[in-house]
Design a protein around this nucleic acid. Structure first.
Length: 492
RNA sequence: GCCCUCAUCGUCUAGAGGCCUAGGACGCCACCCUUUCAAGGUGGAGAUCAGGGGUUCGAAUCCCCUUGGGGGCACCA
């Protein structure tokens, strides 16, 4: 199961955890479930809910139970899968705990708790609940309620002893409950339940057999086990994944890394590349395969082979993998995926028109293998759809040439190219006569080609020159050569 | 401060006692190809397996200690 909280856009860590749960479930033929943990009402929004569900779907992660679209569509035998719709279940459970004295009302105010924490910090003691309300008589409770003037929260009694489990990834882990920070709150003063409580009740009532989550939950797991015990529920199997780290080795954060899946998508990373990369963050098939589709990963996935140590996010490797997958795309598919990026470039004025699909498609043989991301298409061949190149005349002059030579050469090239009509405007028709020109003048082909390249595209790095001129078309090629020659004139 | 946990090239990793003079990939550097840029090909640099003790005929692999890193300790999730 994956149980995100709609308090922010889909995070890379959430996507990776979802992926591993998905891989595990699909590999063993289990049921994968999606649940929304929206009890933090103040921070939860429907917009984030939509972002998370759509982002996960975009990546190709699907589930068997849970809401499929934002705001509704709860599917499955344990609906609803949205915690704010399950309040009755939590209430029933907390009443049971209260009745059995496994939990108790706590009247402590934020100020009291804050003072406790400060005192503990000053004494170099670990923070923990002091138990002020743990053993109150009925009369005392009434008095304290009156005294603090606020509704009681509910705290769970942490029993002494050691809690342990056999982690799917980390083997045996045991933690003494004295290190849990004392009795913890399971229901807020306003009656809404807290994460540690809801997660246990939901996992139990939704028949969750395996909980795969981030390593940051290891120290929470004993609390959950205690709750499963107190409620009389079967305890699921836990597996704690290594964290995704910032380049500096700390837990990945918005502050230090780009964490929103949407942002990667907007940069032109494709789902295949992202999923392949995520899968290899903490896992490997144990073979020397690097580029694997999700289906291939599902086939090979083995949770025993998941790494224990955290993995730093390496953007360079993601880009390489993304490029690998872009190269594998079918032409029509790639044209479809490129379209929004072209439109976006038009919208922010980086190009002056969006090319037709056929035009984009004709470019693919020469462009596809040069794209680390979809968005890179604009940097690569944006000059094709730009009216003003913003040409730097100095750039047109090759290193070995001066401006005068360049002007003469471009003029000669212009004449030769002008001799072609629309019919012979093909790469293998244009190249030979220009090579003859180079031969006759004793120039280097590279110099002439570079001068033409810069004159017609404004840049020194482009796809192969003659394919580029063909894409540009006869009229624009000649016009740009004219413009470059004119720009060169003042330089000599 | 307390608890938990991790530790192989810069990075992601292979490695479950002898196959390891530690393999692959990204990145980096050369060279080849080549009109530029990519892609591709070939080769190279790059880890005394954090350090120290054991166990064993034999340890990157098992045990202990040290060191270093990370995570957690909310009426957040």
């Amino acid at each position: 199961r994956i149980a995100p909280s709609p308090t922010g856009p889909l995070h890379i860590g959430t996507a990776r955890t979802a992926l591993f749960n998905f891989l595990f479930a699909r590999h063993v033929g289990g049921t994968f479930l999606f649940r929304l943990e929206d009890t933090d009402v103040a921070r939860s929004t429907i917009a984030f809910e939509r972002d998370i569900i759509e982002g996960l779907h975009w990546l190709g992660i699907t589930w068997d139970e849970g809401p499929d679209v934002a705001g509704g569509g709860d599917i499955g035998p344990y609906a609803p899968y949205r915690q704010m719709l399950r309040l009755g279940t939590y209430k029933e459970a907390s009443d049971r705990l209260l009745a059995a004295d496994l939990a108790y009302p706590c009247f402590c105010t934020p100020d009291e708790l804050e003072a406790d924490r400060k005192a503990q910090e000053a004494a170099k003691l670990p923070p923990r609940y002091v138990g002020r309300c743990a053993n109150l008589t009925a009369d005392e409770r009434v008095a304290r309620l009156a005294g603090t003037g606020r509704a009681a929260a509910i705290r769970f009694r942490v029993r002494p002893g050691v809690v342990g489990w056999n982690d799917m990834i980390r083997d045996r882990i045991e933690i003494d409950t004295t290190n849990l920070g004392g009795d913890f709150v399971i229901v807020r003063g306003d009656g809404t339940p807290l994460y540690h409580f809801t997660v246990v009740i939901d996992d139990a009532s939704m028949a969750i057999s395996h909980v795969i989550r981030g390593e940051d939950h290891v120290s929470n797991t004993p609390k959950h086990i205690l709750l499963f015990e107190a409620l009389g529920h079967a305890i699921p199997v836990f597996g704690h994944l290594p964290l995704i780290l910032n380049p500096d080795g700390t837990k990945m954060s918005k502050r230090k890394s780009q964490t929103a899946v949407d942002d990667y998508r907007a940069e032109g990373f494709i789902r295949e590349g992202l999923m392949n990369y995520f899968a290899y963050l903490g896992w490997s098939p144990g073979t020397e395969e690097d580029v694997l589709s999700v289906d291939e990963v599902i086939e090979r996935f083995d949770i025993d082979k998941v790494q224990k140590g955290g993995a730093r996010f390496d953007r360079g490797r993601l880009e390489w993998l993304n490029g690998q997958w872009i190269r594998k795309l079918e032409p029509d598919d790639l044209v479809d995926r490129l379209r929004p990026f072209l439109q976006a470039a038009l919208d922010d004025g980086r190009i002056d028109r969006v090319p037709a699909d056929d035009e984009v498609r004709s470019l693919l043989p020469v462009v596809q293998e040069r794209l680390p991301t979809l968005a890179a298409v604009v940097d690569l061949v944006g000059f094709l759809w730009t009216d003003d190149l913003g040409l730097d005349p100095a750039l047109v002059v090759p290193k070995r040439w001066d401006a005068a030579t360049t002007r003469v050469a471009l003029a000669a090239a212009h004449d030769i190219l002008a001799g072609h009509d629309a019919v012979t405007w093909e790469a293998d028709e244009l190249e030979p006569p220009l090579r003859e020109l180079v031969e006759a003048r004793g120039w280097k082909a590279g110099d002439l080609f570079m001068a033409i390249r810069v004159a017609t595209t404004g840049r020194t790095a482009t796809p192969p020159l003659f394919d580029t001129l063909v894409a540009l078309g006869r009229d624009r090629t000649l016009a740009r050569l004219d413009a470059a020659i004119a720009a060169l004139t003042p330089l000599g």
